[in-house]
């Protein structure tokens, strides 16, 4: 179905959300316009505000409205242990297990030469700065257990080795292909505790 004008634009805009096809987008649009115009206004304002104010944390690159996210700026967190993850969603997943008290570094992706994604795209320069500063004693590689995740872990592991920093890889209790997002908290806790040092 092709619609013109503002309504069409709104429906198409909603289609950019995961899990939303044209049919449900249309339902959402009509709902907002017919039944909940105040809610719609609030949503629009919030969206604009978050876009203006939420950016990458200057230390760990997760999403935050402050310069430093609540984890990086928390006095109780161990700044000398850094957990490397692929996405901000992974930070949430690891936080839920409550087994980790260090800080994170979010790559927003994984090395994938066939997709044109190299170290530059993952902010590895920023990570290297942190590793070279001497403040980091250990890194934990919690990238996904896919070939790209493994390649990324290897690359970051080599960076750590360059600065004589201990690096360990979490022991995924899942087959190759597993993404952190799909692992339950129990399995992930085991994976953290069973991490093995890479040499």
């Amino acid at each position: 179905m092709q619609r013109n004008g503002l309504l069409g634009q709104l429906i198409q805009g909603l289609c950019c959300l995961p899990g939303v096809g044209p049919k449900s987008a249309q339902r959402m649009a009509f709902h907002l316009l017919q039944r909940d115009r105040t809610g719609a206004e609030q949503l629009a304002k919030t969206l604009l505000q978050t876009l203006d104010n939420i950016d990458y944390c200057q230390q760990c690159r997760t999403l935050t409205e402050d310069k430093l996210c609540s984890i990086c700026s928390h006095p109780g967190r161990d700044q000398s242990t850094v957990c490397i993850v692929e996405s901000p969603a992974d930070v949430w997943v690891v936080e839920q297990t409550a087994v980790f008290n260090g800080v994170y570094f979010v790559l927003h992706g994984r090395l994938s030469p066939l997709d044109g994604i190299g170290p530059e795209e993952l902010g590895l320069e920023l990570l290297e700065q942190q590793l070279s500063s001497g403040a980091v004693k250990e890194i934990i590689l919690a990238t996904n257990s896919t070939v790209e995740g493994e390649a990324t872990a290897h690359f970051v592991g080599e960076l750590a080795r360059k600065y004589q920093i201990k690096a360990s890889r979490i022991a995924h209790g899942v087959p190759m292909g597993g993404e952190l997002e799909y692992i339950d908290a129990g399995t992930l806790s085991h994976a953290f505790n069973g991490r093995r040092e890479i040499d």
Binding site: T146, V147, V174, M176, G177, G178, Y182
Partner: peptide, 16 residues
């Protein structure tokens, strides 16, 4: 690519 099909996506990794 979803929780139910992790086994299939594991199969579909390169080099297998």
């Amino acid at each position: 690519k979803n929780k139910k099909n992790t086994e299939i996506s594991a199969c579909l990794q390169p080099f297998n």
